[in-house]
Every structure is written in structure tokens, then in C-alpha cells.
């Protein structure tokens, strides 16, 4: 272990790279969480400097996630597969889902092993929720993972959440084909939830966004912006969009209490149903 690391992160075990920002920890910090490192905090502070709306976008996204899960439970969904689930603080899917229906089961998947480990310790003792390490770019390994098959019954509808993660999947990795493979594994009546960073509505906003995107280029998870049409195109024919279609997070079944929050056009969301 290098000396510099020993000094600043004395308690961090060897083998964990705390010298580059990590998407899950940056996001945790953006939401006000404390499960992050200095490098993550500095990174986010810089992003917010170039793009002051970044924090609000993150919040709008997370708030959407909660509403979407509640909506799905109301629609009769009791099984969730949350891919790119992140650090399990501040409004978990299983908390929301099991609050609405104690029988709900949630499988978390993330590519970051630390986030997975934290989820694991948080979920111990909860038979209805589990976590595995997995890569959205290899959907088969997630869908046919023994633990996933043990917790979720794919002969019944499942809601697959890819929330704030598809914008980390470049076109070269075939995001549409990934979603289509996921669709193949689902029975009709299942759902897919997507949120995705889109272009801002004003030229100034877009310029700020470009600078933030540049910052992300130096992390292990660069961001790709896609507009509403492109996001809809990712879904393919296996899914039909549920009203109101691809909209900004703040416009998706807004909480009447939050109606006055500023709109976030760059946080695109959509909920789709397996045909």
C-alpha cells in the first residue's frame, strides 16, 4: 500500500482503489450520504461547480425511483430486479417496496464490489432481499445467476429497474440488445424502468452538461447522454411504453407536495411494460 494512501485512508484495506471516483459513491454523496471517499466528494463538488443543477437531477432521479416502485407495487408487482442499485442508503427499493407490500422481493445487482458488500451487510436478515455482483453488459450472467433464480420467479411478472445506469453503457456495448435480452427473460406483464441523463433544455444548460460529461470521462464510468427519442428506441419492440412515456423525472406522476420543485428536463425516465 502506498504511503499517501496509508496517510489519508489508514483504514482502507489493500486492493481497494480509492484514487478514482466511483459512480455509486459519488451518487451517494450527491444525495447527502456518508458512504463515500474524499475523491468521490471532490469529484462531485467539481461536477456541481460546472453544473449547479447536478444535485437536483440526482435527487429528482432518486425521488422518481421511489415513486416508480410504489406505482409498481400498486400495479401488483412484487418482484424487483434492480440493476445498478448503488449504495444502499437513502430510500432503498426494498424499503419502499416492502413498506407497500411486505411480501415484495428485491434482487439488487451492482458492478461495484464495495457497494455490493455494503448492500449485503445491510440486507442480512431480510429474506426478501439479496444482492449479487453483476455487470449489466452481461445480462445473461445476471438473469441466470443462481441467487437471482432462487429469489425471483421469472414465470411471474418481474420489474427490472435500470435506473441511472444505462447512461454508463456506451453504444458499443449494445444497450438496446442488452434490454432486449432482459425482455426475453420476462413474462408478459413484467415491467422495465429506465432513467437516463438527457440533454438539458437550454443551450447554457447543455454547455454546463458537456463540461460535467468531460469530468466523467476521466472516471471508470464515462457518461453518454441520450435524448428522449434515443431512450425510447433502446426499449425495442418487446416493451410498450406506459403513460406518460419518456418524460423528465419531475413530470412522472409527480408528488403533489413536490409540484413546485424546479423541473429537471435532463433526467429522463420511462416505465415500460413487457408485451
Amino acid at each position: 500500500m502506498g504511503c499517501a494512501m496509508t496517510q489519508s485512508f489508514g483504514w482502507v484495506p489493500e486492493g481497494v482503489d480509492v484514487t478514482v471516483p466511483d459512480a455509486s459513491r459519488v451518487y451517494d454523496y450527491a444525495l447527502g450520504g456518508v458512504h463515500n471517499f474524499k475523491v468521490d466528494r471532490e469529484f462531485w463538488d467539481r461536477a456541481e461547480r460546472v453544473m449547479p443543477s447536478a444535485g437536483l437531477i440526482a435527487r429528482a432521479n432518486r425521488a422518481f425511483l421511489g415513486r416508480a416502485v410504489r406505482w409498481l407495487v400498486d400495479a401488483g408487482i412484487t418482484q424487483f430486479l434492480d440493476i445498478g442499485s448503488g449504495i444502499p442508503t437513502l430510500g432503498n427499493v426494498h424499503e419502499v417496496a416492502q413498506d407497500a407490500d411486505p411480501a415484495a422481493r428485491v434482487m439488487y445487482v451492482d458492478i461495484d464490489p464495495i457497494a455490493v458488500q455494503q448492500s449485503r451487510s445491510l440486507l442480512s436478515g431480510n429474506p426478501g432481499a439479496a444482492v449479487i455482483e453483476g455487470d449489466l453488459r452481461r445480462p445473461a450472467q445476471i438473469l441466470y445467476h443462481p441467487e437471482v433464480l432462487e429469489l425471483l420467479d421469472f414465470s411471474e411478472p418481474v420489474a427490472v429497474l435500470t435506473v441511472a445506469v444505462l447512461h454508463f453503457i456506451p453504444d458499443s456495448a449494445g444497450p438496446a440488445s442488452i434490454l432486449s435480452k432482459i425482455g426475453d427473460a420476462l413474462v408478459s406483464g413484467s415491467y422495465l424502468v429506465v432513467s437516463h441523463v438527457g440533454p438539458d433544455s437550454t443551450p447554457a444548460g447543455r454547455q454546463a452538461q458537456q463540461q460535467a460529461v468531460k469530468l466523467y470521462e476521466n472516471t471508470p464510468t464515462p457518461v453518454i447522454l441520450r435524448d428522449a427519442e434515443e431512450v425510447a428506441a433502446l426499449l425495442g419492440p418487446a416493451f410498450e411504453l406506459v403513460d406518460p412515456g419518456v418524460v423528465s423525472a419531475t413530470d412522472w406522476h409527480p408528488d403533489p407536495e413536490e409540484a413546485e420543485d424546479p423541473p429537471q428536463p435532463a433526467a429522463l425516465v420511462v416505465l415500460a411494460r413487457k408485451r
Binding site: P13, H35, R120
Partner: peptide, 14 residues
Amino acid sequence: GAAEDMNRSEKLHW
């Protein structure tokens, strides 16, 4: 607590 939690998670991960 979070620091301890991360520490433990990382140790477990490692």
C-alpha cells in the same frame, strides 16, 4: 458509523 461500515465492507470484500 458509515466509515466503520465501509471499512468492514471493504475488508469483507477484500
